[in-house]
Write a protein that binds this DNA or RNA. Structure first.
Lengths: 227, 227
DNA sequence: AAATAAATTTAGACAAACCTAAAAAATTGT
DNA sequence: ACAATTTTTTAGGTTTGTCTAAATTTATTT
Protein backbone atom coordinates (compact mmCIF):
# COMPACT_ATOMS: atom_id res chain seq x y z
CA UNK A 1 0.00 0.00 0.00
CA UNK A 2 2.08 2.83 -1.21
CA UNK A 3 1.99 5.51 1.38
CA UNK A 4 0.29 8.53 -0.02
CA UNK A 5 2.82 11.27 -0.50
CA UNK A 6 0.30 14.04 -0.28
CA UNK A 7 -1.25 15.66 2.73
CA UNK A 8 -4.67 14.52 3.75
CA UNK A 9 -6.79 16.19 6.36
CA UNK A 10 -8.53 14.21 9.06
CA UNK A 11 -11.85 15.01 7.44
CA UNK A 12 -10.75 13.85 4.00
CA UNK A 13 -9.57 10.57 5.49
CA UNK A 14 -12.91 10.07 7.21
CA UNK A 15 -14.81 10.64 3.98
CA UNK A 16 -12.61 8.20 2.07
CA UNK A 17 -13.18 5.58 4.72
CA UNK A 18 -16.94 6.19 4.71
CA UNK A 19 -17.11 5.90 0.93
CA UNK A 20 -15.09 2.68 1.06
CA UNK A 21 -17.40 1.10 3.63
CA UNK A 22 -20.56 2.18 1.82
CA UNK A 23 -19.31 0.86 -1.50
CA UNK A 24 -18.69 -2.52 0.14
CA UNK A 25 -22.40 -2.83 0.93
CA UNK A 26 -23.55 -2.84 -2.69
CA UNK A 27 -20.92 -2.52 -5.34
CA UNK A 28 -22.42 0.46 -7.16
CA UNK A 29 -21.59 4.12 -6.74
CA UNK A 30 -22.32 5.66 -3.37
CA UNK A 31 -25.11 8.22 -2.91
CA UNK A 32 -24.50 11.67 -1.49
CA UNK A 33 -27.25 11.15 1.06
CA UNK A 34 -25.75 7.87 2.22
CA UNK A 35 -22.40 9.54 2.83
CA UNK A 36 -24.11 12.41 4.65
CA UNK A 37 -25.85 9.99 6.99
CA UNK A 38 -22.69 7.98 7.63
CA UNK A 39 -20.69 11.14 8.31
CA UNK A 40 -23.41 12.78 10.41
CA UNK A 41 -23.39 15.81 8.17
CA UNK A 42 -25.54 17.47 5.49
CA UNK A 43 -25.69 16.43 1.82
CA UNK A 44 -24.49 19.86 0.73
CA UNK A 45 -21.32 19.43 2.79
CA UNK A 46 -20.79 16.07 1.15
CA UNK A 47 -21.03 17.60 -2.32
CA UNK A 48 -18.35 20.13 -1.37
CA UNK A 49 -15.99 17.49 -0.05
CA UNK A 50 -16.59 15.08 -2.90
CA UNK A 51 -15.61 17.77 -5.38
CA UNK A 52 -12.41 18.33 -3.45
CA UNK A 53 -11.61 14.61 -3.34
CA UNK A 54 -12.37 14.38 -7.04
CA UNK A 55 -9.85 17.11 -7.78
CA UNK A 56 -7.27 15.13 -5.85
CA UNK A 57 -8.17 12.05 -7.95
CA UNK A 58 -9.22 10.09 -4.90
CA UNK A 59 -12.77 9.52 -6.12
CA UNK A 60 -14.59 9.29 -9.41
CA UNK A 61 -17.51 11.69 -9.44
CA UNK A 62 -20.07 12.91 -11.95
CA UNK A 63 -22.78 15.32 -10.84
CA UNK A 64 -25.96 13.58 -9.70
CA UNK A 65 -24.36 10.18 -10.45
CA UNK A 66 -22.90 9.23 -7.09
CA UNK A 67 -19.26 8.62 -6.12
CA UNK A 68 -16.84 5.72 -6.18
CA UNK A 69 -13.23 5.46 -5.04
CA UNK A 70 -10.43 5.61 -7.56
CA UNK A 71 -7.63 3.05 -7.22
CA UNK A 72 -5.64 5.71 -5.37
CA UNK A 73 -8.60 6.35 -3.07
CA UNK A 74 -9.04 2.64 -2.45
CA UNK A 75 -5.42 2.34 -1.33
CA UNK A 76 -5.83 5.30 0.99
CA UNK A 77 -8.95 3.68 2.47
CA UNK A 78 -7.17 0.38 2.99
CA UNK A 79 -4.24 2.11 4.63
CA UNK A 80 -6.58 3.77 7.13
CA UNK A 81 -8.42 0.52 7.75
CA UNK A 82 -5.09 -1.25 8.28
CA UNK A 83 -4.14 1.31 10.91
CA UNK A 84 -7.55 1.17 12.57
CA UNK A 85 -7.51 -2.61 12.88
CA UNK A 86 -3.90 -2.86 14.04
CA UNK A 87 -4.63 -0.36 16.80
CA UNK A 88 -7.69 -2.39 17.78
CA UNK A 89 -5.50 -5.47 18.15
CA UNK A 90 -3.10 -3.45 20.26
CA UNK A 91 -5.85 -2.14 22.51
CA UNK A 92 -7.30 -5.59 23.10
CA UNK A 93 -4.15 -7.74 23.19
CA UNK A 94 -1.78 -5.38 24.96
CA UNK A 95 -3.91 -2.95 26.94
CA UNK A 96 -6.67 -5.38 27.92
CA UNK A 97 -9.56 -3.46 26.51
CA UNK A 98 -12.51 -5.65 25.66
CA UNK A 99 -13.30 -5.95 21.97
CA UNK A 100 -16.47 -3.84 22.22
CA UNK A 101 -14.69 -0.84 23.79
CA UNK A 102 -12.01 -0.18 21.23
CA UNK A 103 -13.74 1.36 18.25
CA UNK A 104 -13.85 4.99 19.35
CA UNK A 105 -10.21 5.19 20.37
CA UNK A 106 -9.11 3.38 17.21
CA UNK A 107 -11.04 5.99 15.20
CA UNK A 108 -8.61 8.55 16.61
CA UNK A 109 -5.46 6.44 16.42
CA UNK A 110 -6.04 5.54 12.76
CA UNK A 111 -5.17 9.10 11.76
CA UNK A 112 -1.68 9.10 13.29
CA UNK A 113 0.80 9.61 10.47
CA UNK A 114 3.96 7.53 10.64
CA UNK A 115 4.82 4.58 8.46
CA UNK A 116 7.57 3.49 10.83
CA UNK A 117 5.04 3.45 13.68
CA UNK A 118 2.65 1.16 11.85
CA UNK A 119 5.41 -1.18 10.72
CA UNK A 120 6.74 -1.51 14.25
CA UNK A 121 3.29 -1.85 15.75
CA UNK A 122 2.50 -4.62 13.26
CA UNK A 123 5.70 -6.47 14.23
CA UNK A 124 5.07 -5.91 17.96
CA UNK A 125 1.64 -7.51 17.59
CA UNK A 126 3.04 -10.48 15.66
CA UNK A 127 1.65 -9.49 12.24
CA UNK A 128 -2.00 -10.25 13.03
CA UNK A 129 -4.29 -11.17 10.12
CA UNK A 130 -7.60 -10.15 11.70
CA UNK A 131 -8.74 -7.58 14.25
CA UNK A 132 -10.59 -8.43 17.47
CA UNK A 133 -13.92 -8.37 15.62
CA UNK A 134 -12.63 -10.90 13.10
CA UNK A 135 -12.26 -8.38 10.30
CA UNK A 136 -9.18 -8.86 8.12
CA UNK A 137 -6.19 -6.50 8.34
CA UNK A 138 -4.88 -5.35 4.95
CA UNK A 139 -1.11 -5.67 4.55
CA UNK A 140 1.16 -2.81 3.52
CA UNK A 141 0.31 -3.33 -0.14
CA UNK A 142 -3.42 -3.24 0.52
CA UNK A 143 -4.00 -6.96 0.11
CA UNK A 144 -5.96 -8.91 2.63
CA UNK A 145 -7.49 -12.33 2.93
CA UNK A 146 -11.19 -12.13 2.31
CA UNK A 147 -13.02 -13.58 5.22
CA UNK A 148 -16.56 -14.14 6.27
CA UNK A 149 -18.04 -14.08 9.72
CA UNK A 150 -20.77 -16.67 10.16
CA UNK A 151 -22.74 -18.32 12.92
CA UNK A 152 -21.74 -21.91 13.60
CA UNK A 153 -25.35 -22.86 12.88
CA UNK A 154 -24.96 -21.52 9.33
CA UNK A 155 -21.70 -23.31 8.49
CA UNK A 156 -21.29 -26.71 6.79
CA UNK A 157 -19.60 -29.64 8.50
CA UNK A 158 -15.78 -29.54 8.30
CA UNK A 159 -15.65 -25.75 8.27
CA UNK A 160 -12.88 -24.32 10.36
CA UNK A 161 -12.50 -20.85 11.82
CA UNK A 162 -11.61 -18.58 14.67
CA UNK A 163 -14.25 -17.70 17.24
CA UNK A 164 -14.61 -13.95 17.00
CA UNK A 165 -17.88 -12.98 18.54
CA UNK A 166 -21.16 -13.75 20.21
CA UNK A 167 -24.71 -12.71 19.44
CA UNK A 168 -25.93 -13.03 23.00
CA UNK A 169 -23.59 -11.33 25.45
CA UNK A 170 -25.60 -12.19 28.57
CA UNK A 171 -23.65 -13.17 31.64
CA UNK A 172 -25.23 -16.62 31.61
CA UNK A 173 -24.06 -17.26 28.07
CA UNK A 174 -20.54 -16.02 28.68
CA UNK A 175 -20.31 -18.22 31.78
CA UNK A 176 -21.43 -21.19 29.73
CA UNK A 177 -18.66 -20.52 27.21
CA UNK A 178 -16.07 -20.24 29.92
CA UNK A 179 -17.16 -23.51 31.53
CA UNK A 180 -16.92 -25.26 28.16
CA UNK A 181 -13.47 -23.90 27.31
CA UNK A 182 -14.72 -21.70 24.51
CA UNK A 183 -13.03 -18.32 24.25
CA UNK A 184 -12.71 -15.61 21.66
CA UNK A 185 -9.65 -16.27 19.53
CA UNK A 186 -9.90 -20.06 19.69
CA UNK A 187 -9.93 -22.06 16.48
CA UNK A 188 -12.77 -24.54 16.07
CA UNK A 189 -13.62 -27.15 13.47
CA UNK A 190 -17.15 -28.37 12.92
CA UNK A 191 -16.91 -32.14 13.15
CA UNK A 192 -20.53 -33.18 12.82
CA UNK A 193 -24.07 -31.86 12.81
CA UNK A 194 -27.09 -33.78 14.07
CA UNK A 195 -29.89 -33.16 11.57
CA UNK A 196 -32.50 -34.10 14.14
CA UNK A 197 -32.00 -31.16 16.55
CA UNK A 198 -29.31 -29.07 14.86
CA UNK A 199 -26.78 -29.78 17.59
CA UNK A 200 -23.16 -29.62 16.49
CA UNK A 201 -19.95 -31.34 17.49
CA UNK A 202 -16.92 -29.02 17.42
CA UNK A 203 -13.28 -29.51 18.27
CA UNK A 204 -11.95 -27.41 21.16
CA UNK A 205 -8.65 -27.12 22.99
CA UNK A 206 -9.84 -29.86 25.35
CA UNK A 207 -11.20 -32.18 22.67
CA UNK A 208 -14.51 -32.46 20.84
CA UNK A 209 -17.69 -31.22 22.50
CA UNK A 210 -21.33 -31.21 21.53
CA UNK A 211 -23.22 -27.89 21.55
CA UNK A 212 -26.94 -27.31 21.07
CA UNK A 213 -28.42 -25.48 18.09
CA UNK A 214 -29.17 -22.57 20.41
CA UNK A 215 -25.50 -22.19 21.31
CA UNK A 216 -24.42 -22.69 17.69
CA UNK A 217 -26.63 -19.83 16.57
CA UNK A 218 -24.95 -17.46 19.01
CA UNK A 219 -21.31 -18.04 18.15
CA UNK A 220 -19.60 -16.35 15.23
CA UNK A 221 -16.66 -17.98 13.49
CA UNK A 222 -14.33 -16.12 11.21
CA UNK A 223 -13.71 -18.18 8.07
CA UNK A 224 -10.64 -17.18 6.13
CA UNK A 225 -10.44 -18.08 2.48
CA UNK A 226 -7.17 -17.10 0.88
CA UNK A 227 -7.68 -15.33 -2.41
CA UNK B 1 -5.19 15.96 37.09
CA UNK B 2 -8.84 16.38 36.62
CA UNK B 3 -9.62 15.66 33.04
CA UNK B 4 -10.89 18.78 31.43
CA UNK B 5 -14.58 18.43 30.78
CA UNK B 6 -14.57 20.87 27.91
CA UNK B 7 -13.60 20.39 24.34
CA UNK B 8 -10.19 21.53 23.28
CA UNK B 9 -9.00 21.73 19.72
CA UNK B 10 -5.64 20.37 18.67
CA UNK B 11 -4.41 23.89 18.14
CA UNK B 12 -5.50 25.08 21.58
CA UNK B 13 -3.69 22.15 23.16
CA UNK B 14 -0.52 23.00 21.25
CA UNK B 15 -0.63 26.61 22.40
CA UNK B 16 -1.17 25.60 26.04
CA UNK B 17 1.79 23.26 25.84
CA UNK B 18 3.97 25.92 24.20
CA UNK B 19 3.08 28.46 26.88
CA UNK B 20 3.84 25.91 29.60
CA UNK B 21 7.27 25.13 28.19
CA UNK B 22 8.15 28.78 27.65
CA UNK B 23 7.11 29.74 31.16
CA UNK B 24 9.42 27.03 32.53
CA UNK B 25 12.41 28.80 30.99
CA UNK B 26 12.03 31.97 33.02
CA UNK B 27 9.21 32.18 35.46
CA UNK B 28 7.69 35.44 34.18
CA UNK B 29 4.85 35.90 31.75
CA UNK B 30 5.43 34.66 28.23
CA UNK B 31 5.81 37.08 25.31
CA UNK B 32 3.60 36.94 22.23
CA UNK B 33 6.64 36.84 19.99
CA UNK B 34 8.13 33.92 21.90
CA UNK B 35 4.92 31.92 21.45
CA UNK B 36 4.81 32.83 17.77
CA UNK B 37 8.34 31.55 17.27
CA UNK B 38 7.69 28.34 19.20
CA UNK B 39 4.47 27.69 17.29
CA UNK B 40 5.94 28.65 13.90
CA UNK B 41 3.24 31.21 13.37
CA UNK B 42 2.75 35.00 13.36
CA UNK B 43 2.38 37.19 16.45
CA UNK B 44 -1.04 38.36 15.29
CA UNK B 45 -2.28 34.77 15.21
CA UNK B 46 -0.98 34.31 18.74
CA UNK B 47 -2.91 37.34 19.95
CA UNK B 48 -6.11 35.88 18.52
CA UNK B 49 -5.59 32.51 20.14
CA UNK B 50 -4.51 33.94 23.46
CA UNK B 51 -7.75 35.92 23.66
CA UNK B 52 -9.70 32.76 23.05
CA UNK B 53 -7.77 30.84 25.71
CA UNK B 54 -8.28 33.73 28.09
CA UNK B 55 -12.04 33.57 27.60
CA UNK B 56 -11.90 29.88 28.47
CA UNK B 57 -9.92 30.78 31.63
CA UNK B 58 -6.95 28.74 30.55
CA UNK B 59 -4.53 31.67 30.59
CA UNK B 60 -4.18 34.99 32.35
CA UNK B 61 -3.74 37.75 29.82
CA UNK B 62 -3.61 41.53 29.83
CA UNK B 63 -2.97 43.39 26.59
CA UNK B 64 0.71 44.06 25.94
CA UNK B 65 1.61 42.35 29.24
CA UNK B 66 2.30 38.79 28.12
CA UNK B 67 0.52 35.57 29.09
CA UNK B 68 0.72 33.00 31.85
CA UNK B 69 -1.22 29.80 32.42
CA UNK B 70 -4.05 29.72 34.92
CA UNK B 71 -4.16 26.77 37.32
CA UNK B 72 -6.68 25.17 34.98
CA UNK B 73 -4.36 25.77 32.04
CA UNK B 74 -1.41 24.35 33.96
CA UNK B 75 -3.33 21.12 34.58
CA UNK B 76 -4.25 20.88 30.92
CA UNK B 77 -0.58 21.34 29.99
CA UNK B 78 0.52 18.66 32.44
CA UNK B 79 -2.09 16.25 31.14
CA UNK B 80 -0.78 16.71 27.60
CA UNK B 81 2.81 16.34 28.75
CA UNK B 82 1.86 13.20 30.67
CA UNK B 83 0.40 11.72 27.51
CA UNK B 84 3.35 12.76 25.39
CA UNK B 85 5.90 11.21 27.72
CA UNK B 86 3.96 7.99 28.29
CA UNK B 87 3.72 7.50 24.53
CA UNK B 88 7.46 8.12 24.24
CA UNK B 89 8.11 5.36 26.77
CA UNK B 90 5.80 3.09 24.78
CA UNK B 91 7.57 3.84 21.52
CA UNK B 92 11.01 3.16 22.97
CA UNK B 93 10.29 0.29 25.37
CA UNK B 94 7.69 -1.61 23.37
CA UNK B 95 8.21 -0.68 19.73
CA UNK B 96 12.01 -0.39 19.82
CA UNK B 97 12.27 3.13 18.53
CA UNK B 98 15.43 4.84 19.63
CA UNK B 99 14.98 7.72 22.02
CA UNK B 100 15.84 10.36 19.44
CA UNK B 101 13.19 9.22 16.94
CA UNK B 102 10.08 9.40 19.07
CA UNK B 103 9.29 13.08 19.47
CA UNK B 104 7.34 13.70 16.26
CA UNK B 105 5.07 10.70 16.62
CA UNK B 106 4.48 11.47 20.29
CA UNK B 107 3.44 14.99 19.26
CA UNK B 108 0.56 13.37 17.39
CA UNK B 109 -0.29 10.70 19.95
CA UNK B 110 -0.47 13.20 22.81
CA UNK B 111 -3.74 14.55 21.38
CA UNK B 112 -5.64 11.25 21.49
CA UNK B 113 -8.57 11.72 23.84
CA UNK B 114 -9.32 8.80 26.14
CA UNK B 115 -8.67 8.66 29.85
CA UNK B 116 -9.08 4.88 29.89
CA UNK B 117 -6.41 4.62 27.21
CA UNK B 118 -3.86 6.58 29.17
CA UNK B 119 -4.58 4.72 32.42
CA UNK B 120 -4.14 1.39 30.69
CA UNK B 121 -1.06 2.51 28.80
CA UNK B 122 0.48 3.71 32.07
CA UNK B 123 -0.20 0.32 33.68
CA UNK B 124 1.08 -1.56 30.61
CA UNK B 125 4.36 0.35 30.83
CA UNK B 126 4.72 -0.32 34.55
CA UNK B 127 3.93 3.23 35.73
CA UNK B 128 7.17 4.81 34.52
CA UNK B 129 8.39 7.93 36.33
CA UNK B 130 10.50 9.39 33.53
CA UNK B 131 10.44 9.32 29.75
CA UNK B 132 13.30 8.08 27.55
CA UNK B 133 14.95 11.52 27.68
CA UNK B 134 14.89 11.48 31.47
CA UNK B 135 12.08 13.99 31.77
CA UNK B 136 9.58 13.28 34.56
CA UNK B 137 6.06 12.01 33.78
CA UNK B 138 3.32 13.84 35.72
CA UNK B 139 0.81 11.55 37.42
CA UNK B 140 -2.95 11.77 36.92
CA UNK B 141 -3.20 14.58 39.45
CA UNK B 142 -0.50 16.61 37.73
CA UNK B 143 2.22 15.95 40.34
CA UNK B 144 5.64 14.87 39.31
CA UNK B 145 9.01 14.47 40.90
CA UNK B 146 11.20 17.36 39.96
CA UNK B 147 14.34 16.11 38.38
CA UNK B 148 17.42 17.56 36.87
CA UNK B 149 19.53 16.24 34.07
CA UNK B 150 23.21 16.87 34.61
CA UNK B 151 26.54 15.79 33.24
CA UNK B 152 28.49 13.48 35.54
CA UNK B 153 31.27 16.06 35.46
CA UNK B 154 28.93 18.61 37.03
CA UNK B 155 27.67 16.43 39.87
CA UNK B 156 29.07 16.17 43.42
CA UNK B 157 30.47 12.93 44.84
CA UNK B 158 27.80 10.57 46.18
CA UNK B 159 25.16 11.76 43.68
CA UNK B 160 23.06 8.99 42.26
CA UNK B 161 20.98 8.92 39.09
CA UNK B 162 19.83 7.16 35.99
CA UNK B 163 21.87 7.47 32.82
CA UNK B 164 19.56 9.12 30.31
CA UNK B 165 21.63 10.56 27.57
CA UNK B 166 24.89 11.35 25.88
CA UNK B 167 26.34 14.56 24.50
CA UNK B 168 28.54 12.85 21.97
CA UNK B 169 26.67 10.24 20.01
CA UNK B 170 29.62 9.19 17.85
CA UNK B 171 30.02 5.51 17.11
CA UNK B 172 33.34 5.45 18.95
CA UNK B 173 31.80 6.84 22.11
CA UNK B 174 28.81 4.50 22.03
CA UNK B 175 31.19 1.54 21.55
CA UNK B 176 33.21 2.68 24.53
CA UNK B 177 30.06 2.77 26.66
CA UNK B 178 29.05 -0.68 25.54
CA UNK B 179 32.48 -2.12 26.31
CA UNK B 180 32.35 -0.58 29.78
CA UNK B 181 28.87 -1.86 30.57
CA UNK B 182 27.30 1.57 30.54
CA UNK B 183 23.85 1.76 28.99
CA UNK B 184 20.95 4.18 28.98
CA UNK B 185 18.63 3.35 31.83
CA UNK B 186 21.35 2.16 34.21
CA UNK B 187 21.63 3.67 37.69
CA UNK B 188 25.04 5.02 38.67
CA UNK B 189 26.47 6.44 41.87
CA UNK B 190 29.44 8.77 41.87
CA UNK B 191 31.86 7.20 44.33
CA UNK B 192 34.86 9.49 44.04
CA UNK B 193 36.37 12.29 41.98
CA UNK B 194 40.10 12.83 41.43
CA UNK B 195 40.72 16.57 41.74
CA UNK B 196 43.96 16.29 39.81
CA UNK B 197 42.47 15.27 36.40
CA UNK B 198 38.72 15.31 37.03
CA UNK B 199 38.41 11.56 36.52
CA UNK B 200 35.52 9.94 38.36
CA UNK B 201 34.83 6.56 39.91
CA UNK B 202 31.26 5.38 39.42
CA UNK B 203 29.41 2.22 40.40
CA UNK B 204 28.10 0.09 37.54
CA UNK B 205 26.34 -3.23 37.20
CA UNK B 206 29.70 -4.93 37.10
CA UNK B 207 31.27 -3.01 39.96
CA UNK B 208 33.03 0.36 40.27
CA UNK B 209 34.90 1.76 37.29
CA UNK B 210 37.03 4.82 36.71
CA UNK B 211 36.09 7.15 33.83
CA UNK B 212 38.03 10.13 32.50
CA UNK B 213 36.83 13.73 32.74
CA UNK B 214 36.17 13.60 28.99
CA UNK B 215 33.77 10.71 29.40
CA UNK B 216 32.17 12.26 32.49
CA UNK B 217 31.37 15.41 30.56
CA UNK B 218 29.51 13.45 27.91
CA UNK B 219 27.16 11.43 30.09
CA UNK B 220 23.91 12.82 31.44
CA UNK B 221 22.44 11.49 34.68
CA UNK B 222 18.88 12.11 35.69
CA UNK B 223 18.80 13.12 39.35
CA UNK B 224 15.41 12.77 40.99
CA UNK B 225 14.69 14.78 44.09
CA UNK B 226 11.28 14.06 45.59
CA UNK B 227 9.40 17.23 46.40
C1' DA C 1 12.60 63.27 27.72
C1' DA C 2 12.30 62.80 23.03
C1' DA C 3 13.23 59.98 19.19
C1' DT C 4 13.71 55.60 17.50
C1' DA C 5 13.07 50.75 17.62
C1' DA C 6 10.74 46.70 18.93
C1' DA C 7 6.76 44.24 20.37
C1' DT C 8 1.96 43.80 20.24
C1' DT C 9 -2.63 44.48 18.73
C1' DT C 10 -6.28 45.66 15.37
C1' DA C 11 -8.53 45.43 10.97
C1' DG C 12 -9.66 43.10 7.17
C1' DA C 13 -8.99 38.75 4.26
C1' DC C 14 -8.63 33.88 3.22
C1' DA C 15 -9.15 28.63 3.17
C1' DA C 16 -11.31 24.59 5.18
C1' DA C 17 -15.30 22.49 6.53
C1' DC C 18 -19.43 23.12 7.77
C1' DC C 19 -24.38 25.24 7.59
C1' DT C 20 -29.43 26.85 5.58
C1' DA C 21 -32.43 27.81 1.92
C1' DA C 22 -33.47 27.65 -2.72
C1' DA C 23 -32.86 25.72 -7.36
C1' DA C 24 -32.14 21.90 -10.44
C1' DA C 25 -32.01 17.12 -11.75
C1' DA C 26 -33.47 12.41 -11.20
C1' DT C 27 -36.81 9.15 -9.75
C1' DT C 28 -41.38 7.43 -8.74
C1' DG C 29 -46.37 6.85 -8.97
C1' DT C 30 -50.39 6.84 -11.34
C1' DA D 1 -46.20 10.93 -19.72
C1' DC D 2 -46.21 14.10 -16.49
C1' DA D 3 -46.97 15.57 -11.72
C1' DA D 4 -45.17 14.79 -7.28
C1' DT D 5 -41.47 13.43 -4.57
C1' DT D 6 -36.82 12.69 -3.51
C1' DT D 7 -32.07 13.52 -4.24
C1' DT D 8 -28.47 16.46 -5.29
C1' DT D 9 -26.37 20.74 -6.20
C1' DT D 10 -25.76 25.77 -5.91
C1' DA D 11 -25.48 30.12 -3.60
C1' DG D 12 -24.37 32.53 0.10
C1' DG D 13 -23.02 32.60 5.07
C1' DT D 14 -20.43 31.02 9.58
C1' DT D 15 -16.46 29.54 12.43
C1' DT D 16 -11.65 28.33 13.25
C1' DG D 17 -7.19 29.37 12.64
C1' DT D 18 -4.38 31.51 9.86
C1' DC D 19 -2.38 35.65 7.20
C1' DT D 20 -0.68 40.81 5.84
C1' DA D 21 -0.52 45.51 6.63
C1' DA D 22 -1.30 49.24 9.46
C1' DA D 23 -1.86 51.22 14.03
C1' DT D 24 -0.73 51.32 18.78
C1' DT D 25 1.80 50.51 22.92
C1' DT D 26 6.08 49.56 25.31
C1' DA D 27 11.09 49.60 25.53
C1' DT D 28 15.57 51.48 24.39
C1' DT D 29 18.87 55.04 23.13
C1' DT D 30 20.93 59.04 23.28
Amino acid sequence: MYLYYFEMTLSEEDYIKAIYHLSQIDGKTVATNAIAEQMQTKPSSVTDMVKKLSEKSLVKYKKYQGVSLSEKGRLVALSIIRKHRLWEVFLVDKLNFSWDEVHEVAEQLEHIKSDALIDKLDAHLGFPKVDPHGDPIPNKEGFFTKSVKKLISELPVLSEGVCVGVNDSSVAFLKFLDKNNIALGDTFKILDREEFDGSVTISTRVGPIRISEQIASNLFLEIVDEE
